[in-house]
């Protein structure tokens, strides 16, 4: 019984390591191949939320390395990844990084700016919280 449980945990760890490595590959591939910062953010977010979190799951399943610390690490990764992506996208938009092949820009219409405009306007009312 005990050896069966160990085998199941080892298979789970194996699958988690392979899946995490594949997610890391997808993220880095997207970082190289995608055309602009906004699409690259979409790819790089996968690495922290899926790639690293699956590796931590493997660490817990295989060696039960600090279950509490691993849980804190997974929660931190899942909260921090999207927050960082949001902050970087906001910074990119406000510093005027252009979009490639943008179909629409709702924020520009709302703020009366042309599509993919230049540097941030000096109008203080246009400030968005980061």
């Amino acid at each position: 019984m005990d050896s069966t449980l160990k085998l199941v945990l080892q298979v789970i760890a194996l699958l988690a390591i392979v899946a995490g490595s594949l997610f890391s590959l997808i993220g880095v591939l997207g970082l190289i191949r995608l055309p602009d910062v906004y699409t690259r953010l979409h790819a790089a977010g996968k690495v922290s939320v899926f790639g690293a979190a699956l590796l931590v799951v493997a660490a817990v399943a295989l060696e039960s390395l600090g279950l509490g610390k691993a849980l804190v690490l997974i929660v931190l990764l899942i909260i921090a990844g999207p927050a960082v992506s949001h902050a970087l996208a906001s910074a990119a938009y406000r510093t005027g990084v252009p979009m490639q092949r943008a179909a629409r820009d709702d924020l520009a219409e709302q703020r009366g700016r042309p599509l993919s405009s230049g540097p941030r306007s000096a109008d203080p009312s246009s400030d968005l919280p980061v």
Partner: peptide
């Protein structure tokens, strides 16, 4: 600059891995 910052963030996540 944002592009490089995104790269640095990815580097730190890969170091964590």
């Amino acid at each position: 600059a944002v592009d490089r910052l995104l790269g640095v963030e990815l580097v730190s996540v890969l170091i964590l891995c």
